[in-house]
């Protein structure tokens, strides 16, 4: 097992290098001298920001020196100072915002998993039943509906027309005066719509995947043999089939992390949630490049870690992966 983990970790090294190269390339996308170009195009881009930019990315040095200098700083998570007037460092800003995004995404992922799995498993078990068909319709709708539009519509209906749910922010303005229970309720209340909507967005893909995975397993010979031995259906489905159908689902859940993080840009800006997504959006709009780069690098690294965790847990439960050819 340790051997397997070590191999996985070693496999990450080229990926990490690749991620930094691509991020570094993005900085140099602006045509000509990026700093010059920016200051001429953008009146908000002040003289001091220009100097900061040149200094931060060492634009007066040759490319490879610049890259190595930059990677050295990224390795210790030093992304420099934000261009915004508050003058905080990029990491300070990200640290402030990270917990909210992680809280929302983890809550979303847990819910997606526990809703999508039964949906997928049941529709595979009762293939072509009315239940299966309605899940299929739901999946098609889920894939096609623009979630930001759905968010707007829900905001309008539940927030404006019915007034049941708050339409923005994470806490009420009187949050500090609430009791502990009241505080918890307040947070759940505020997070309800964003989480439900991000769950809705992820549900379609995962439940479809769980269904296919379960269908495949149900066709395997060991399932037939378990039935032939006269085991009860519950035992066959839950003990023999589900266990094996679960594995690919876990991997896909890991792979869906980038999608969720990407989606948080939209949800957080619609619902004014002060998370990484909103920070990223604001920085893109204000052309606060150090923050944009910081979030981009961290987003990719988080994804990498997510995939690694999925891989390792897959290896933990399935020896075929651990001792497999690769």
């Amino acid at each position: 097992m340790l051997n397997y983990i070590a191999r996985r970790l070693a496999g990450m090294v080229p990926l990490l290098i690749g991620i930094t190269i691509i991020c570094f390339a993005v900085i140099h996308l602006a045509p000509g001298d990026p700093a010059q170009f920016l200051s001429s195009m953008n009146p908000k881009f002040s003289e001091s920001a220009h100097e900061k930019f040149v200094k931060l990315y060492g634009l007066d040095k040759p490319l490879h020196v610049r890259y190595i200098d930059w990677v050295k700083r990224v390795a210790v998570l030093d992304f420099g100072e934000s261009f915004a007037p508050d003058g905080k460092t990029v990491m300070e800003k990200i640290n402030e915002r990270m917990p909210v995004t992680i809280y929302l995404n983890v809550a979303g992922m847990v819910l997606i998993f526990f809703i999508a799995l039964p949906l997928g498993v049941l529709s595979a078990y009762r293939q072509n039943s009315i239940f299966d068909k309605s899940v299929t319709v739901f999946v098609f709708v889920g894939f096609a509906v623009p979630t930001f539009w759905l968010a707007l519509m829900c905001m309008y209906y539940f927030g404006v027309v019915k007034g049941w749910l708050p339409i923005s922010g994470l806490k009420s303005y009187n949050y500090d005066q609430l009791t502990t229970l009241g505080k918890m309720w307040d947070i759940v209340h505020h997070a309800f719509l964003p989480i439900v909507l991000s769950v809705f967005g992820g549900l379609a893909g995962l439940s479809r995947f769980a269904r296919n995975s379960m269908l495949e397993v149900l066709g395997e010979e060991y399932v037939t043999s378990a039935r032939a031995r006269g085991l009860s259906e519950t035992r066959v489905v839950f003990k023999h089939a589900l266990k094996n159908a679960l594995l690919p689902v876990v991997t896909i859940l890991g792979l869906s992390i980038p999608g969720l993080i990407g989606g948080s840009v939209i949800f957080e800006s619609i619902f004014s949630i002060p998370g990484m997504g909103q920070l990223f959006y604001q920085s893109v709009m204000a052309r606060d490049y150090p923050v944009v780069m910081g979030v981009l690098v961290l987003g990719a690294i988080l994804t990498l870690i997510g995939n690694l965790v999925a891989d390792i847990s897959y290896g933990l439960v399935d020896p075929r992966i651990r001792y497999g050819k690769k």
């Binding site: 990407g262 944009v292 987003g299 990719a300 990498l304």
Partner: peptide, 10 residues
């Protein structure tokens, strides 16, 4: 590895 929406925005 990149959340594609992040990359696009960046």
């Amino acid at each position: 590895c990149f959340p594609s929406f992040f990359l696009i925005l960046a």
